[in-house]
Computed example of a mutant assay.
Amino acid sequence: MSDERVSSWTEDELGVPGRVLPVVRAPEPVLSTVGADVDPTSPETVQLAADLVGTMRVSPGCVGLAAPQVGVSARVFCVDVTDHPKTRTGHGTFVLCNAEVLESSRNEKAREGCMSVPDFTGDVKRASRLVVRGALPGTGEVVTLTTDAFEARALQHEIDHCAGLLFLDRAAGAHAIYARTTYL
Rank of each mutant, 00 (worst) to 15 (best):
D3Q: 13
E4Y: 13
S7T: 15
T10A: 10
E13C: 14
E13H: 13
R19Y: 03
V23A: 08
V23E: 07
V24P: 02
E28N: 09
E28H: 12
S32N: 00
V34I: 14
G35K: 07
G35V: 03
A36C: 11
D37N: 08
V38H: 13
D39N: 11
T41K: 02
T41D: 09
P43F: 00
A49C: 08
A49Y: 07
D51P: 05
V53Q: 03
R57K: 07
V58G: 01
S59G: 04
P60C: 10
P60A: 12
G61C: 09
C62V: 07
V63W: 13
G64L: 10
L65S: 05
L65A: 06
A66H: 02
Q69A: 06
G71N: 06
G71R: 03
A74W: 00
R75P: 01
V76H: 10
V76C: 10
F77I: 05
C78H: 05
V79Y: 09
V81N: 12
P85Y: 07
K86W: 15
R88P: 09
G90P: 12
H91Q: 04
G92N: 04
G92S: 00
L96H: 06
L96M: 13
L96D: 08
N98G: 00
A99N: 06
L102F: 04
S105K: 14
S105C: 09
S105P: 07
E112T: 04
G113V: 07
P118T: 12
G122C: 04
G122E: 01
V124W: 09
R133M: 01
G134R: 07
G134T: 06
G134Y: 00
A135H: 06
A135Q: 14
L136I: 12
P137A: 04
P137Q: 04
P137D: 11
T139H: 03
G140S: 01
E141P: 02
V143A: 05
L145Q: 12
T147E: 02
F150L: 12
F150V: 03
E151P: 15
E151M: 13
R153W: 11
Q156H: 01
Q156R: 09
Q156L: 15
Q156A: 04
E158A: 03
H161G: 01
L165G: 09
L166T: 02
H175T: 14
T182G: 05
